[in-house]
Computed example of a mutant assay.
Amino acid sequence: MSEAHVGHGAVRSEPSPAEEPARSDTTLVVVTGVSGGGRSTVARALENVNFYVVDNLPQALMLDMAELAFQAGGAARNTAMVLDVRSRAFSTDLAGAIRALKERGFQPRVVFVDADDEVLIRRFESVRRSHPLQGDGRLADGIAVERGLLEEAREQADVIIDTSHLNVNQLRSRVEELFGGEDARRIKVTVLSFGFKYGLPPDADFVLDARFLPNPYWVPELREHTGREEEVSRYVLGQHGAVTFVETYARLINATAPGFEREGKRYLTVAVGCTGGKHRSVAIAEELAARLRQVRLSANAQHRDLGRE
């Protein structure tokens, strides 16, 4: 076999194996979850942050799709695969499919979208659609069947996004913050404020209770304002124990983050609650997220129940 020569007899060498990209350099996101949970919104949000999205992909083709993305390079290096239980090729062995990807050298991240049953029922009824698995039964029957099929997939998820109290814009913002621009290998912390009277966030890893602080709701000039506004934030953080509370949890999260990263956890949700999710929890969540960013953690504050009152 002849070799091509360049200049004065210099031989053009082939790239060494060390210079070739690794499969782990391909960012793979696997999106699944309950029907009506928001998979389509997640897919559009990933497209917004320059992912190549393959919708309704049969699970049997995941490895082939990953190889195509790796070989194509370029824009395909960020690829999302959306799995739909309605596909006849869908299998409940998501763990096996993910294991096969890892054995091939990929590092997939699994996103599972979920919502409360009553929320799913309202969503289906609002668009006058039947559940894809309900058959001749009720909506609730289809939801129950699907939950059974997806039980293992939920257990394998790297991040679970409960969309029960999220609108389309909030869900899109959450996905874009998780996958847009920053180093995807670093743990990402969402500090989520909420109101206890609306229920605990089911996707919380830590739950913090800010109800020990005086409630600005009972201060007439603060009642109509929120914890994102300076006068409310100053009032909340000025109470005895408030700053110590934030500092203590900031140290705890900063101390445990490296361990979570070593164990492969990439997304951490810290929920901060007060009675209504308007004043104390919002101010504490904003301050805690700021403190975490100061120690170089990727953290953002979100407010589940702000505006519900």
Rank of each mutant, 00 (worst) to 15 (best):
N169R: 15
T26F: 07
G238P: 03
T269I: 04
E20R: 15
L222D: 02
A60E: 09
H8K: 13
N300R: 15
K102E: 15
A97M: 09
Q59T: 14
S35K: 04
H131F: 01
L63Q: 13
E151Q: 13
V175D: 04
E309Q: 08
E263Q: 10
Y267W: 10
M65F: 15
E177Q: 14
D25R: 11
H225P: 11
E118R: 12
R211V: 03
A75R: 15
A255V: 11
Y198L: 05
G199R: 01
A153I: 11
E155D: 15
D25W: 06
Y52A: 09
L46F: 01
A22L: 15
V11K: 10
R262M: 08
L57I: 07
F51C: 07
S91C: 02
V31T: 11
R186Y: 04
A80Y: 07
E309G: 10
R293Y: 00
S173V: 14
A255R: 14
L63E: 10
I160D: 10
V159E: 12
S91D: 11
R86W: 01
N254F: 09
G7R: 06
V119L: 04
G135N: 05
N215I: 03
R308C: 02
S233Y: 11
L46Q: 10
E20K: 15
M62V: 08
Q134Y: 03
I143L: 09
E229V: 02
A80K: 08
I143P: 03
V82E: 06
K102S: 15
D158T: 06
V34G: 05
F90I: 03
V34W: 05
E261R: 04
E287Y: 02
A290D: 04
S40I: 07
L292H: 00
E47W: 11
E151R: 11
N50W: 14
A72D: 12
R266K: 11
D158A: 04
G199C: 01
R44W: 10
Q71M: 12
T32F: 01
E182L: 13
R104A: 14
V207M: 07
D205R: 12
L252M: 07
Q302V: 13
F196P: 01
